Simulated scan of single mutants.
Amino acid sequence: MQITGRKLLAATVTAALLLGAGTTLALAPGGEAYGDGAKTQVKQGIDAWQKGDYGGAVRTWRPIADAGNADAQFNLGQAYRLGRGVPTDLRTAQSWFEKAAQQGHEQAQANLGLALFQNGERERALPWIRKAAESGDPRAQYVLGTAMFNGDLVPQDWPRAYALMQRAAGQGMPNAATNLEQMDKIIPLAQRQQGLALARQMEEKSPAKPAPVPGSIGKANLPPANSAIQSTLAAPAPANSVPARATPAPSRAAQAAPAPRAPVRTAAAPAVRGAGWRVQLGAFSTSANAQRQWAGLRGKVGALASLQPFYVPAGAVTRLQAGALPSRAAADKVCSAAKSAGSACFPVAP
């Protein structure tokens, strides 16, 4: 989704739905409510799935899914969505997601909302997308932020749209950082500052996520919903500065300090002092994915040929950056070429 004029295109959310949904399975602490036996059975199904025995996993989950176990219901939805162990059947997948979502299963709520949105049932989708966004799902935050920017199905609310897009970008959602740069050119400074304050409030209110259960596959392979938002309140900066994209979590003292009224200064990912400007080409769940992206982009974008790749760890994601470049203008030029090739890209200050 990219901005044209003053509107984010209501493009397909297939990429958002597939991001992180992948082969993610659920074995959440909530499973304990169904007793140790059901929790063990969910885990046995995951073990079978990870060994490639998809049919065995489905057979293991189905009885407890029929009995109401939300984790098993979500996992069956994934099996039908992916066509593993059962024929691909998106309607059946959606049905299982809805059963789990009705019980408060966060992953199911996100997948259900995005599936409904993708199928054109946007009014039905919106309540589930809201719930998922409030729970910290970056895909839902990205879609809801787009709707609020456009005023589609919901009242137009640029500060909240900016906050949601900031949170999505902070969790490695592709294209969210690119959309933020475009929003910077359209949303007035005062509203962007309001958005950053809202993003901090969302982070503080976001419930802490439990540690992954051994043997489970973590949700979306993305940072937890309460990971640091990609902004930091710093010294006053020029009015046209771009809101920060990624910083470590602020100290408690910094969190307690009142937010300055001045715009924020761009906060770069860790960089070598004096190494010059870089461009960031995305955030990936693994370093291997970042390396594959670099290999593909370098062959398509001539401006990257002379640059060195950097794979910067940032919580649960790896940022792909390239440099060094002598100036912001040079970085902008490289980003222009990268975007023409279909890649997200934004400059990172030294």
Rank of each mutant, 00 (worst) to 15 (best):
G52Q: 01
Q156Y: 01
P138Y: 05
M173P: 13
N289I: 00
A316T: 12
Q156A: 09
Q255L: 14
L164Q: 03
E106C: 01
R192Q: 15
G120D: 01
D89F: 12
A254N: 08
G85M: 11
A303T: 10
A48S: 04
G145E: 10
G35V: 10
P260K: 06
C345L: 05
T178P: 06
L180I: 10
R192N: 09
L114Q: 07
P127W: 12
V312K: 00
V334F: 04
A235E: 14
P127G: 10
A79Q: 07
D36T: 12
E32G: 04
R192V: 06
I186Q: 15
Q193N: 14
P347Q: 02
K51Q: 08
W294M: 01
M183Y: 11
V13P: 03
S251P: 08
S227R: 00
A199L: 02
A269E: 12
D47G: 01
P243R: 10
V213F: 15
K39I: 03
F284G: 00
A140C: 04
R292T: 00
A57K: 11
I187S: 07
P250M: 11
P260T: 05
T286V: 00
S343Y: 08
A163V: 05
A220V: 06
L304P: 02
Q191Y: 11
V213H: 05
Y142C: 05
L114E: 04
Q321K: 11
D152V: 07
I217Y: 02
Q141W: 02
Q78M: 15
D89W: 06
A79T: 03
V242E: 08
Q102C: 03
H105T: 02
G5S: 11
K205N: 15
G56A: 15
R273Y: 10
S306V: 10
A330P: 09
R273H: 11
H105N: 02
N150Q: 09
T14Y: 07
G315T: 06
L304T: 01
V42S: 00
P313A: 05
Q291N: 00
N221M: 14
P155M: 02
A262P: 04
L114T: 03
W49C: 01
A211L: 14
D71A: 12
G22D: 15
R265Q: 13
A235Q: 13
F117L: 01
G37V: 14
P212F: 05
L76S: 09
A48T: 03
W49T: 00
L281G: 05
Q255V: 13
A168S: 08
A28E: 14
V272G: 07
Q291L: 00
A275C: 08
A220Q: 11
L164N: 01
V242H: 13
G52W: 02
G37Q: 14
I217L: 12
P270D: 10
R122K: 06
G218C: 05
T88V: 11
Y162V: 04
A225N: 04
N226H: 11
A28S: 13
E32M: 13
Y162H: 06
D66Y: 12
A344F: 06
I46H: 01
A28F: 07
P210H: 05
A190Q: 14
S306W: 07
Y142T: 07
P243Y: 07
R252Y: 08
W49V: 00
T178A: 14
E106F: 03
P127Y: 13
V312H: 00
Q230N: 13
A290W: 00
V312T: 12
P238R: 15
F284Y: 14
T12H: 08
Y311C: 01
Q201C: 02
R124D: 02
R91N: 14
L17C: 03
R122A: 02
A244Y: 06
A79P: 08
Q109C: 11
